[in-house]
Nucleic acid binder design. Structure first.
Lengths: 342, 342
DNA sequence: TTGTAGGCGTTATCAT
DNA sequence: ATGATAACGCCTACAA
């Protein structure tokens, strides 16, 4: 027998399929003894309901999907963990969908929602200006996490959980300026980035302006090509290039902690010291930054709270069949030993 | 209209459902013009075939699932990426299933295989002595990656891709001994660990023995409680405890790079220097170890090759409907600056 | 409390 | 080349 089905179980137990179905789904109208017999048989024959058949029939699929391009991104990894526990705790199925770097997460999401008749979706990371045409194709509630996406006016049934990247970036640069730094380099995303990279760059520019410091183009370092952005290797390579260019600066702002670690290593390899010669700050508040030597001063996001809020909002949207929610969290500077007062 | 179905498309185009199905699935017997009309309509109405219905009907589900407890584990993250690309490239669907820490991955796998009619599975990490009773429940081919699991004699349709943890551990300790170290502490998993933690500890013991060094219990540090093992925090806490105990040692072997980073930080915080006062080695070959300051000497696993081999073996098992495969990769020592000759 | 039957959306087998 | 129709495994009225 290939796969045990509900019919097999019914036949073995000498009952109808609906009785088996009742047993499985904890329906009230069933004789406890019959139920016990059925459950035992299910155990014995190792029967598992065919999920496809259930989904096909059920109005409620009870599945939440989380889509992201970076399951490996330590920033996301921690939040995913939290969201998953929360979702499973609410007796929903949880599907983690890694989106290929070349694909559009909304496109994949729209397809997935149909295919699996999802109850809700979470997008972790992604574009900050999602295309209206793609959003329109998504029929289920969803929450965009970690990106304060700019949403079209007429959109509905969505939530946003993020920090104010521009403002937090500003806060950090402001801090550096108050520490006496004037020549601050930034290691940021692609030149044409429209997401977090742009926002953090904007904050950097505004802070410098407010301190009356001119923002030299030569100190703004973009990633050169496509591919994974927030890697230590990128941080290393770009910082090394900057050092070798002979450009003078007293601090480096890497827009992620991973980049910051690469930056530190480049400075050490170049024969200089952090923070004695050059100060380094990162962003995100990863564990890694805390355990680096020296510990890297960074912007710490309240990851657990954000993850829980994401889940909370999603279920609220599901329950109320729509609406718009937005929660911008406050981050804070976590001081390490990577910044020197000058 | 709630969800557009194949019937709707058929009706709109004035054709039968089977014709639409033919268009979707690139069947030969169809008029190119009709096909074009159908495809256009599908585009316009944003129709997506219901995956559940397809799976229910199809003999072949063409889905591969990867199960792991640590999507966030940087060691796994990279391999997952590689496997996913490879699987998608072969036109299979790829499902990433994060297994909750409290669950048994084989149990979840057995269930998932039935539910989704999987074509094959990959277990990344997990128990090194899987229960026969659970293995027996898995009907589809699978590959266990990164663990050289001890399999029951009568098992079939599985593959194993791993390194020889005991031997590689031996190699590393042997290296330390040749560098003149005699007092080598080890930061390892739970005392009752039967998986990678045990194997690496065994290698450590054997290497010391071969060098005529007594293995002091006081230098073997186990994790105290349940929970995530391979975290920087654990490495930090345990090393700090060891330092404060007053025990003398010249080197620390942390059985993962994450633990090693925590160990380094503890040493620095204690006021000592790596490698001047204490040498540190890790294991796994993470990027993180390379960019740490000082770069941590570690055992580098050929992650990409292992990931590709995992995929290759799985498809071979699928094609041939069974068999047993095993590929133990050779790792190598990647020298950093965290070890001093004494 | 239990069984029968219809249908969920799709694909495949027949006819036509 | 195309359309009707029978499954796939399950859930759920409705009937008994």
């Amino acid at each position: 027998m290939g796969q045990v089905t509900i019919k097999d179980i019914a036949k073995i137990c000498g009952v109808g399929v609906s009785t088996v179905s009742r047993a499985i789904n904890n329906h009230p109208d069933i004789n406890p003894e019959t139920k016990q017999l059925i459950m035992d048989t299910i155990q014995e024959y190792n029967y598992v309901p065919n999920n496809s058949a259930q989904n096909l029939k059920r109005v409620e699929s009870n599945t939440i999907a989380l889509l992201t391009k970076g399951v490996g991104n330590p920033l996301f990894a921690e939040m995913i963990q939290t969201v998953q526990s929360d979702v499973l705790g609410k007796d929903y199925l949880f599907v983690l969908q890694q989106v290929d770097e070349m694909e559009n997460e909304l496109e994949v999401g729209a397809r997935l929602a149909n295919e699996k008749r999802l109850k809700g979706m979470i997008f972790m990371g992604g574009a900050s200006r999602p295309k209206e045409e793609l959003l329109a194709r998504i029929q289920v509630p969803y929450v965009i996490c970690t990106v304060d996406a700019v949403m079209p006016e007429n959109m509905d049934h969505y939530g946003i959980v993020a920090i104010d990247d521009e403002a937090e970036s500003y806060r950090l640069i402001d801090y550096l300026c108050r520490m006496g730094h004037k020549k601050i380099a930034i290691i940021t995303a692609y030149a044409h980035d429209t997401s977090i990279g742009k926002l953090r760059l904007d904050g950097y520019r505004r802070a410098l302006a407010d301190h009356g410091i001119e923002c030299a183009d030569s100190l703004v370092v973009h990633m050169p090509a496509k591919g994974q952005v927030y890697t230590m290797k990128n941080g290393y390579d770009q910082t090394m290039k900057l050092l070798q260019s002979g450009e003078k600066f007293t601090a480096v702002y890497a827009i992620s902690d991973t980049l910051a670690i690469g930056a530190c290593k480049a400075i050490f390899d170049y024969g200089l010291k952090v923070p004695d010669d050059i100060s380094v700050v990162g962003c995100d508040g990863l564990d890694m930054a805390r355990y680096y030597q020296p510990a890297i001063t960074t912007i710490e996001q309240p990851l657990t709270e954000m993850a829980l809020e994401t889940s909370r909002i999603l279920f609220e949207l599901i329950r109320e069949k729509g609406g718009r929610r937005k929660h911008i969290f406050e981050a804070r500077i976590r001081e390490g030993q990577s910044v020197r007062r000058i």
